[in-house]
């Protein structure tokens, strides 16, 4: 089960700001979910291969042939902030 400080840390790892007052509710609801997963504790998975995707395909590869790129205009159209033809962001540290 997740403790309160873990919950705060988890919110930061997820990079989602959560108000202090909402932390207990987040903690409680995530813990409720975790508790419900006890249902798989007894699944007999010893030696069983994992399934990552239900597709039965394998080794799907693409030919190395270039296609035209998107225009810079399209690329930057949705950008919150632009500098020349680059995406601009606030300082990183």
């Amino acid at each position: 089960m997740i403790q309160k400080d873990e919950m705060k840390k988890l919110a930061w790892v997820a990079r989602i700001a959560v108000e202090e007052k909402d932390i207990p509710e987040f903690q409680e609801k995530i813990n409720a979910k975790l508790a419900s997963y006890a249902a798989i504790a007894d699944a007999p998975v010893g030696g069983v291969k994992k399934t990552v995707n239900p597709s039965r395909l394998n080794t799907v590869l693409r030919k190395d042939t270039a296609a035209p790129s998107m225009s810079a205009e399209d690329a930057l159209k949705n950008a919150p902030e632009v500098y020349e033809t680059s995406f601009k962001i606030p300082k990183i540290l």
Binding site: Y83, E84, T85, S86, F87, K88, I89, K91, I92, L93
Partner: peptide, 14 residues
């Protein structure tokens, strides 16, 4: 970065 990474006012990405 605009300036050094420690003292930058912002960064741009390509």
């Amino acid at each position: 970065h605009f300036g050094t990474i420690e003292k930058s006012t912002g960064s741009i990405i390509d």
